[in-house]
């Protein structure tokens, strides 16, 4: 039996969890798991979107995720203005923002034939500036009901983790059971062959770039509601995180191969490894070095497995 590449992300998350708890001899296990599920959810949501884009093949990546999160969070919270019963209006604003960002990104890539890295990076400066211009960095509180939802739990699991899980199931079904998923994988493995086989490659690309932005916008909306308001730098750490969870999760960075369960495990791992190093009192420098080393080790482990298959 061959090891699935997603096993490694989960194994590493489990290990980091156990090692952290060794310090407390088992105390606080529930607390740590709950925190990991809460914060892992945001990384998972943006990671799922990034995974779809990376699956499109070499050169495809969305670097506008942080700016999209910030813009969607800022606009949504400004629209809601802390008024009760506006949660769905805010959600609509956030998703519409994500849709708009996705359209702009794809048009830059498709019409101007810009490499996605350049297009999304350059466009993200515009999104970030729009976010600054729209609200000058003021933190507006989310409506109380929405804040309660974002920080609340259902059957002991954080609500945001349920959102991430539902989204993951939907993405998994589309990738594994729907024609669109086959088209995406085929486009990522060989765009020319896919086009000759009659697959609407550009439509697949358009849908993918729209999805990643809508996912990022949703994450921005939830994160802003979770942490008591949108901040201009709130998406910053999700740029590398979104790519790291895809790679650790066992998806191929060269595209054409995606892995939904791996992204979830990797998202938990990214939170747990930092918590583990913090708990052991590692300094900032050592923490960065160890985090990088561990990520490289997992990626090597996962990819060696794959090449032997």
């Amino acid at each position: 039996m061959t090891m699935k590449p997603w096993v490694w992300g989960w194994a590493a998350a489990g290990l980091a969890f156990v090692v952290t708890l060794m310090l407390t001899s088992g105390r606080g296990a529930g607390e740590l798991a709950y925190a990991a599920l809460s914060f892992g959810a945001f990384a998972a949501i943006v990671g799922l979107g990034q995974m779809l884009v990376i699956t499109l093949g070499p050169g495809n990546v969305d670097l506008s995720i942080p700016a999209c999160m910030t813009l969607a969070g800022t606009l949504a919270l400004k629209t809601m203005g802390s008024d009760p019963n506006t949660a769905f209006l805010g959600l609509a604003v956030a998703l519409a923002t994500g849709f708009g960002v996705g359209c702009v990104n794809f048009l830059l890539i498709w019409l101007l034939r810009l490499p996605p890295i350049i297009a999304t990076l350059a466009a993200s400066l515009i999104y970030q500036s729009l976010a600054i211009w729209s609200n000058r960095g003021l933190r507006i509180k989310p409506p109380e009901g929405l804040a309660d939802f974002a920080t609340g739990r259902f059957i002991g699991v954080p609500n945001v983790a349920w959102v991430a899980l539902i989204l993951a199931v939907v993405v998994w079904v589309i990738l594994e059971r729907a024609v669109w998923g086959r088209w995406l994988l085929a486009s990522g493995q060989n765009a020319r062959a896919a086009r000759l086989a009659g697959i609407p490659v550009e439509a697949v690309r358009a849908a993918t770039y729209l999805s990643v932005s809508v996912f990022a916008a949703l994450a921005g909306y939830l994160l802003a509601s979770f942490s008591g308001g949108a901040a201009l730098n709130m998406g910053a750490e999700y740029l590398l995180t979104s790519i790291a969870v895809v790679v650790i999760g066992g998806s191929s960075i060269a595209g054409g191969n995606s892995n939904v369960p791996g992204v979830l495990g990797a998202a938990l791992f990214m939170f747990l490894v930092v918590s583990m190093l913090n708990s052991y009192g590692a300094g900032a420098g050592i923490k960065s070095v160890l985090t990088g080393t561990i990520i490289i080790a997992i990626v090597i482990a996962a990819s060696t497995r794959r090449s032997r298959q």
Binding site: T20, T24, R27, G28, R139, F226, M234, E237, F271
Partner: peptide, 19 residues
Amino acid sequence: HGDWAQDVAQKAVAGILPS
């Protein structure tokens, strides 16, 4: 390290509190 940001600090503190 909270990076002078509420959301980053919240995440880091939530991770270290259990221990």
